[in-house]
Design a protein around this nucleic acid. Structure first.
Lengths: 222, 222
DNA sequence: AATAAATTTTAGATTTGTCTAAATTTTATT
DNA sequence: AATAAAATTTAGACAAATCTAAAATTTATT
């Protein structure tokens, strides 16, 4: 079965919005897709006709098994292309989204299989998000907000929650990347910031705002 | 300026058909694009509106400077992707056309620039067709039909005119690739075939039909 | 040169995905 | 529980790209 780009984009959006609430509201989809609620209603009905979603008038929409499978295939393509753009074509990880958004709709099983092989079957994309494997399985890795972490424990940056200019600027300035090790030294409640140490450099202060979008895993050993 | 996939496909087809006749007929375009003549008329009018082609009712269509520039950009993308698919992702050169047909419509200047750099600025695609450079310039190389070549002169395969199963089978069987050196030994007019020697293997007989679609350059020295 | 054949265009319809505005249903508030 | 507000759907319209069938034009043939 072949799907249009519009259909694929709807399915992908439903998938992402379902991470927050099992039933996705028409308005939420409309906002995510930068379109009107009325258009969403139309398309959702079509997707129901194609047996990709469950939908009830005025209630909301959610993917069924077929829709979820399709979503994971699209996300797999998106993230593999992002990995390719960053690791092979030397894009910055903040420049790849739009291009991957186009590449993800290219339809060729062999293309994705060979791209995956060429890249060495990567399990995480340049933002730290897991790349679904051929069967749609996602590798797990802790993604805890840096902000909430206990002081003095060693942590490793596993993902970035967004790509705001402020976050970018901070990461570049302090040489923080995915894989970088950090510790939270203390929290300043009066101005909403925390002090952390990066690798073994001198301490750095970052806003709670930013610390919320940096995701880490806890390193037990050591 | 951004163009739809349909528009890009029309422009590309006009470019290719113009290699044969300066003015392209509606029916030719319709056949090349697998669509109806009436649809071609509609689209050609739209392309004229966008200042990409010259067009006169009942006469035919041809690219203007802007249209030619666009065509070369699209062909550049198509052939770079074909090169990538064959040389990086290990596709066979007979498997790449459809996928490149999709990839060529991805729009990102940086993507193509970086892909070109990664591939080492190749000047010919896997079929031996020239890859336009950033300015649209095409490298030249002789592409003479093997069939018409003088006997006993050393020749080098520079391109394949099509990818018919028969041609593929023959090339694979006799280990002939782009770059392979051959000589025409003699012509058999009674059954429409020629005898050639490939590299230094024993002579091989191929049909005139196939010999017409194999393109060569003449190697002077030697 | 008249007529037939082929080509091309026009007119009107269709599908996809979108929109606005009005009507409906659900949720929140008094 | 009635009413106001918010969310959602329906109805009708539109643009893009296509189609079929009929009309117009060009080319070929007698």
């Amino acid at each position: 079965m072949l799907y249009t780009i519009a259909e694929e984009n709807y399915i992908k959006s439903v998938y992402h919005l379902q991470q927050q609430s099992a039933l996705v509201a028409t308005n939420h989809l409309a906002e995510a897709l930068q379109t009107q609620p009325a258009s969403v209603t139309d398309m959702v009905k079509k997707l129901m006709g194609k047996k990709l979603v469950h939908y009830e008038r005025y209630k909301g929409v959610r993917l069924n098994a077929a829709g979820k499978k399709l979503a994971l295939q699209i996300i797999r393509k998106h993230r593999l292309w992002e990995y390719f753009l960053v690791n092979t074509l030397e894009f910055g990880w903040d420049e790849v989204h739009e291009v991957a958004e186009q590449l993800e709709h290219v339809s060729s099983a062999k293309l994705i299989e060979q791209l995956d092989r060429f890249l060495g079957h990567p399990r995480f994309d340049p933002h730290g998000d897991p790349i679904p494997d051929k069967e749609g399985k996602l590798a797990f890795r802790q993604r805890l907000p840096l902000l909430d972490q206990p002081h003095l424990k060693w942590l490793e940056i596993t993902a970035v929650g967004d790509e705001s200019p402020a976050l970018l600027e901070m990461l570049g300035h302090h040489r923080i990347q995915l894989g970088t090790r950090v510790r939270v030294l203390r929290s300043f409640s009066f101005d909403g910031s925390i002090e952390i140490s990066v690798a073994d450099q001198k301490p750095v202060t970052i806003s709670n705002q930013l610390a919320k979008t940096l995701l880490v895993k806890i390193i037990d050993h050591d």
